[in-house]
Design a protein around this nucleic acid. Structure first.
Lengths: 240, 240
DNA sequence: TCCTTTAATTTGTGATCACATTTTTATGTA
DNA sequence: TACATAAAAATGTGATCACAAATTAAAGGA
């Protein structure tokens, strides 16, 4: 039993049907966050009934959430149609790296032009990024891998979300969903000692000064650095 | 007592469970092809029960197929959670264009390096592309919009599939799923007279000569041309 | 004819059951 | 202990029902 206290077991009887949004939406969103933040290990089995039990719902919402996550590559099917958190391979890692380098600088540029004429939004974004970055530094010094992974994803998506570019954001989310679980494992092995966030400071500066070229380059550097760190680790399977 | 004649009329009883692959897989694949090839109009309503009836299956496989297509942006939810084929907006179109320009040249480059050391695979690919291109030209001269849309997607994915890059291919598929239905409408309005396929010839040449730079530029030009053609048309909603 | 109101139909979503298959655990044998 | 075999539990998938909400069709009134 690896999970432990995942807030389950509570008798939050989910009403007859729903409350605000659909149940499967809630299950999906929760799983998505956990995967992006690297809180679930690759190769871990995910079953409809267990997921349903954890969320205290029937099989239906669990099935739909799983189906969506499979569709975006976060979960993968075995030969016998069982579902697990996607494994990493060197080839897949290379693809993800190329796709991130291609998309995330564009997305950050969209953000820049979205806030170019809105000083208040820009200041708010800078503030948000700085706050996250402070916590990020603390997590690094604490050696808290879990917190680092979560805050790092928070940082990037706080930046990307402001782009108002739903299509691009979905693509990038899909990529993070695929390497998130694996990143956590790697950093867990290497420790946070190898981590720096120089690029984050530059990203914040570029946002402040509305310097698109600098921003894109900083994002690109951040991706390269992160992916390089991961590649230091051999992409051997990490079964539990 | 719904039993009796089961009211299903048609006795294509789909076995107890399945036969080769899962039913929802079949429904999904069929819908995916139709959407990419532009055979379904944007804004058209898609409901679980109607889809199930069309495929002579129960609601279950239809639901899962719909869920997957929503996940990749091919279908969209209304405010009341009803499902329709995604509408196009100028902003979305711009995002898709940027993403295609960022990803498809990379994907074609992957294909090139995948077949670089395999003359037989290369010849087969060239042959496939030439065959499709011949039919494409015919479709253009015939003014057959439907055939053009299908063959055009066939051409690109015949090229991209050879990359063996599942992650990148999924992202690109997602993009085509989103603009496919809309493209059909636009070309339907403009007619095939405005279409040319100069880039396709260049793409084939670049594959033959293993010229990566030329290939990427040709793919880029093809995307720009296609998206420009579409943009000539005002992105007014095309409700039925 | 046009608009409001009411009835009927359609639809999304959750829950539950059935069944074949797979996976795991238990059991027996050498 | 090691391994093959059988029993038991778990799992994916399809089918069906229930219910609330929404859409559409029908009816009524001016």
């Amino acid at each position: 039993m690896p999970a432990a206290e995942t807030a389950s077991a509570i008798e939050i009887i989910p009403k007859s049907t729903e409350q605000g949004g659909a149940m499967h939406e809630k299950v999906y969103a929760t799983l998505k966050s956990a995967l992006i933040a690297g809180q679930l290990a690759p190769g871990r089995a995910v079953s409809v009934r267990r997921l349903a039990a954890e969320f205290s719902v029937s099989a239906m919402p669990a099935r739909e959430a799983i189906r969506r996550l499979v569709a975006v590559g976060a979960l993968e099917l075995t030969a016998t149609r069982r579902v697990m958190i996607a494994q990493m391979t060197p080839e897949k890692m290379e693809e993800i790296k190329q796709a991130r380098l291609a998309l995330e600088p564009i997305l950050s540029e969209f953000t820049l032009s979205a806030i170019a004429q809105k000083p208040r939004a820009r200041n708010r974004l800078v503030k948000t990024l700085e706050d996250i970055d402070v916590n990020l530094d603390e997590a690094i010094h604490r050696g808290d891998v879990l917190a680092y992974a979560k805050l790092n994803s928070d940082f990037h998506f706080a930046l990307y979300r402001q782009a108002g570019a739903h299509v691009l954001l979905s693509l990038v989310e899909s990529l993070w969903l695929q390497f998130g679980p694996f990143m956590r494992v790697v950093i867990g092995r290497l420790g946070t000692s190898c981590l720096v966030d120089d690029q984050h400071k530059e990203i914040i500066e570029a946002v402040e000064t509305l310097d698109a070229a600098k921003l894109k380059e900083a994002v690109r550097a951040d991706i390269l650095h992160g992916m390089h760190t991961i590649s230091l680790d051999e992409v051997q399977d990490s079964q539990a």
